[in-house]
Design a protein around this nucleic acid. Structure first.
Length: 767
DNA sequence: AGTATCGTCGTTTTT
DNA sequence: CGACGATACT
């Protein structure tokens, strides 16, 4: 029983109580993964059959790592029988084996967000609706949240309250779009991400014997990151656990950061109400971070109202205080961060892999990357545009998808004219229309357009025929060989390889390389003996065919890819950093309207979520956290002013290196003249630095800066005033907002359009 | 049918 | 800025 000695008292309690409903509230860095792992080991040591254990994690990577640890303690032959994976991958697997009951083929396609969006765009167009009113993104998120709350398309369309809501927002057709969307997915043999959960609920609701089967199988259920589950997931768990009630959820309400995806923090807050005999254990000792980091994070999160009480503490050293870097541009911010890393590496012999740079939005990575490259610091971006989302990869995968599931409409649309086959837009419009009218798959129509009343020239019909023959031939060989064999056959005979090979441009070569990379990935898959997503092959099925490969990667994200333990600096969004830890963490872009995001600052709950996000970011750091902000930043192509984030001021000054410069101080001005700075690192550029590093056009079109340009007293500025700005020229004030000392004006400039200006920065004269 | 060019619009965050 | 769609031209 040596493994129990590796746990503290609280952890031990959470591990040894095997039966009944249990909630573990695990503070950041408190050994949550260890508890989950040891708990499973403990269960197996106590003769619980691994076949009866279901462990749900947030990422496939987390599942794989946990499985590896368990394997190393109890052996792979036992560990492999545990069902372990994300909600999506586990229930996708169940749905595949029960698909027939729902009228789906077991090789159904999983539509990713791009597929869903493209289908929605198509439907909006077919209905002749205005896509400025029915924005595809908005429609998709409406549908998504409906599904996550188990509202079906027909429920949605027939619900009076929803209807009224949608009419009021001038979008009465949302229900109709939803219904068509659902129908089209079904006809294409496709489920989107939300369907994987939604249809699981339907399956368990409508087929009691199926539910019973899985209840009986999964007698012990463990859920990681419970704070980020949504209603649909909650209900699946509730149903599965109803019979034995051996459910253990682990999470931290302070780290709930996925409400935009339907995650409902109430799930964790209400667990005790749900299971009245639930035992609750709290893990409060932090093993990860220094006292300064833990204390700073505690003080911050205390500002949130809604949370379970806990008291995170650490025995670690006090450590260095948090450092705050102020810069004058986003480029300079990148420079300072790269510089800091450079010196830490040199002076303290740190490895690249000890550093992480975290940001709120993916677009912030650019400036950072540039700076790291200049300093020759190797880095890797996690998340962002995933490998699997690159155009050439998606094109090739679309052929695979179509070969596996010939009804897959989105895949077909993608490749029917790539490489060029002379099948254009008009032809496709006719075909899609006919497919819908006749309720058959698109490929059926392609195969025989006349039969469905499509008028086309015989030349086009021949082209269509040869395409559908091609797909048919792929479909026939899909399980007639190993994945690599079939994949390379498709890659070359479809013409994709050739298309990219002849393109000798830099991008073309890169694309060709990417195709080679995915093919060698498939080769690797063909040769390995277990599947890397944390779920092993169904018993008795050890064929390494292309359709199994596609199932394997459909739900993989970039973060899941194991790119070796190469020694590089990690760049990622804060969301992607959840669950990770690094000795040195840089959190960049600590600015109002960026972090917290401007979309969140008007609602208490959303602002609290941003604060939790900051909490997550801070608590990734083991040794030192460095925060940075810039007073200006390029946003969608033009320069904007930025104020330091309110979160900086929420940090207790006792834990930071240098007092945060309070907003409203006069030395915050953009027109900054070099003067002694407290940080040393901060003082370098004058404003020209900002322009030089950007494109030269901007400098050329800008008004020359007049050093004698004086700002007027703006305290009497009001709406409708005409003003003069030294760079933007003349304009009219159309809006004023904010409190005095912090006033923001929206000015419609005659030449350059509308700009938001902070009056304490902007040099304006009233005309 | 295919290509070139222009205008539009947007951004959190991801399974 | 950059992706994408609509438009106009070859």
């Amino acid at each position: 029983m040596s493994y129990l000695d590796e746990l503290n008292e609280a952890q031990k309690k959470a591990v040894v109580k095997i039966d009944g409903p249990i909630m573990v509230i695990a503070g950041a860095g408190s050994g949550k993964t260890r508890v989950l792992t040891y708990r499973i080991i403990h269960m197996i040591e106590n003769n619980i059959d691994p076949f009866n254990i279901l462990a749900l994690t947030f990422t496939n990577k987390a599942a794989r790592e946990m499985k590896d640890r368990i394997s190393s303690k109890i052996g792979q032959s036992e560990a492999r029988n545990i069902w372990m994976g994300t909600f999506h991958s586990v229930f996708a697997r169940i749905l595949r084996s029960e698909a027939k009951l729902l009228g789906y083929p077991s090789n159904f396609t999983i539509y990713d967000t791009d597929d869903s969006k493209s289908l929605i765009k198509r439907i909006i167009k077919e209905l002749n609706l205005d896509d400025k009113v029915y924005k595809p993104n908005l429609v998709l998120s409406r549908i998504s949240s409906a599904k996550n709350n188990l509202i079906s398309a027909s429920n949605y369309a027939n619900n009076a309250v929803i209807q009224q809501e949608d009419s009021q927002s001038r979008k009465p057709e949302l229900g109709r779009i939803f219904q068509i969307y659902e129908k089209r997915c079904f006809q294409a043999g496709a489920m989107d991400f939300d369907d994987l959960l939604y249809k699981t609920n339907i399956l368990f609701r409508d087929f009691k014997e199926v539910l019973l089967k899985y209840q009986d199988k999964f007698r012990y259920i463990l859920v990681d990151e419970y704070q980020d589950t949504n209603f649909s997931q909650y209900l699946i768990l509730k149903k599965l656990a109803a019979r034995f009630e051996n459910i253990c959820v682990v999470g931290d309400d302070a780290q709930s950061i996925y409400s935009f995806r339907g995650a409902n923090i109430q799930n964790i807050l209400n667990f005790q109400k749900e299971y009245s005999d639930a035992q609750v254990f709290k893990l409060e000792q932090n093993y990860r971070s220094t006292q300064n980091i833990v204390n700073a994070a505690n003080g911050l999160i205390a500002k949130n109202k809604e949370q379970l009480k806990k008291d995170v503490w650490t025995e670690n050293t006090v450590g260095e205080k948090l450092k705050i870097i102020k810069t004058l541009s986003d480029n300079e911010e990148g420079f300072e961060v790269a510089n800091d890393i450079f010196y830490k590496k040199a002076n303290e012999q740190r490895a690249n892999s000890e550093f992480a740079i975290l940001y709120r939005t993916n677009s912030q990575s650019r400036a950072i990357e540039e700076a790291l490259r200049k300093k020759d610091i190797p880095y890797r971006i996690y998340g962002g545009l995933s490998f699997y989302h690159r155009k050439e990869i998606k094109d090739l995968l679309a052929y695979f998808r179509l070969a596996i599931n010939p009804k897959d409409e989105e895949a077909l649309k993608r490749v029917i004219n790539y490489p060029k086959r002379g099948i254009g837009k008009t032809t496709m419009d006719k075909i899609l229309l006919a497919a819908n009218a006749n309720e058959v798959s698109v490929l059926d129509v392609v195969h025989n357009p006349m039969q469905f009343g499509v008028q086309l020239s015989s030349a086009v019909i021949t082209k269509l025929k040869s395409f559908s023959d091609l797909i048919d031939s792929y479909h026939k060989i899909i399980d007639k060989g190993d994945a690599f064999n079939v994949a390379s056959k498709i890659a070359s005979s479809s013409g994709i390889l050739k298309e990219l090979y002849v393109d000798k441009s830099v991008e073309g070569v890169a694309r060709y390389d990417n195709i080679q990379e995915i093919l060698s990935g498939i080769k690797e898959f063909t040769e390995q003996d277990t599947i890397e997503d944390g779920i092993d092959l169904p018993e008795g099925n050890d064929k390494r065919t292309l359709d199994i490969y596609m199932q394997d990667i459909a739900l993989l994200t970039d973060t899941d890819k194991n790119k070796g333990d190469s020694n590089v600096v990690s760049l990622m969004t804060i969301h992607a950093s959840k669950g990770l830890e690094f000795p040195y963490v840089y959190i960049v872009g600590m600015e109002e309207n960026l972090f917290p995001s401007q979309l969140s600052i008007n609602s208490r709950t959303e602002l609290e979520e941003e604060r939790r996000l900051f909490y997550v970011a801070l608590t990734r750091a083991e040794t030192k956290a460095t925060l940075s902000y810039s007073t200006t930043r390029y946003r969608w192509g033009n320069l904007t002013y930025a104020e330091p984030s309110r979160f900086l001021q929420e940090l207790d000054v006792r834990y930071i290196d240098q007092a945060v410069e309070k907003r409203g101080r006069s030395d915050f001005e953009f027109n900054y003249s070099p003067k002694p700075s407290t940080s040393g690192l901060n003082q370098k550029p004058n404003p020209s630095f900002i322009n030089k590093t950007r494109n030269l056009k901007k400098v050329a079109t800008a008004q020359p800066t007049d050093p004698n340009f004086q700002a007027a007293d703006l305290s009497n500025l009001k709406k409708g005033d005409r003003v003069l700005h030294q760079r933007f020229g003349k304009g009219e004030v159309i809006k004023l907002e904010g409190s005095s000392g912090n006033l923001k004006a929206t000015v419609e400039f005659d030449q350059v359009g509308s700009k938001n200006l902070l009056l304490k920065f902007a040099k304006l004269q009233i005309l």
